[in-house]
Design a protein around this nucleic acid. Sequence first.
DNA 1: CGGTATCCACCAAGATACTG
DNA 2: CAGTATCTTGGTGGATACCG
Lengths: 129, 129
Amino acid sequence: MDSVDAPGPAASLVSDVFARACTSREAFEGVTSRWSSLVLLALGEGPHRFGELRRRVEGVSERMLAQALRGLERDGLVSRADAGTIPPRVDYALTPLGEAVATGLRDLADVLEAAVPAIDRARVDYDAR
Amino acid sequence: MDSVDAPGPAASLVSDVFARACTSREAFEGVTSRWSSLVLLALGEGPHRFGELRRRVEGVSERMLAQALRGLERDGLVSRADAGTIPPRVDYALTPLGEAVATGLRDLADVLEAAVPAIDRARVDYDAR
DNA sequence: CGGTATCCACCAAGATACTG
DNA sequence: CAGTATCTTGGTGGATACCG
């Protein structure tokens, strides 16, 4: 995996989200995908069990949650601790890398949450045209 | 930063990305959706014309690019300047809100780009199970 | 050049049922 | 409780053709 053609300002960059086949783009898409981002946000508030996540992330199905968690675990953003007990208990938490990503996502969510009134206004304006 | 289910420090919070019907979640999903995030990243490097964006964001189709731009314009993240000339010239740029979001996305991309080796390793480990 | 319109394939994703 | 299996469908998104 290398640069596109004409590397930009940061010519020493080894990975590039704009590059179709780059791991960073795949990871970026994984992180920003619908449920994964909300799961990371939830785990940013502390470790959660499966059921807790299901309740915290409104609207997620078991299937999608399991899938998101598997993807995040695979990329090393989330750790999975199976207590091996009955009834089962599995705790999910962020790895250090996951923390860094979740923090970024939190900042983004904060910006958007604060901008809700402006966004609502912009939508009304736009739709009125 | 805050606790899991207690309202937390910002008890006056009016919007919540975890809420299914909240504008902030819609906007969050718009911003993190596949092509929109890459478009914002590209525009974070400066204003671009349609064709420039198409080339910069590897793999995007005209249809998806147009759709992403419309969504971002609707939410007030991107401004559209049609020169009205022939041949046509339309410049896209970030609004102040768009800048804030793009900066957050950039941070995220930086983290992920830097973490590529770790992610690749994590994937190999995971897949070996 | 900067789009829109149309068609179509595929997969994301929901519902449901079942298991360790 | 924490998932997996299976089925089904609607939306996402690609290809192509065309318009101002």
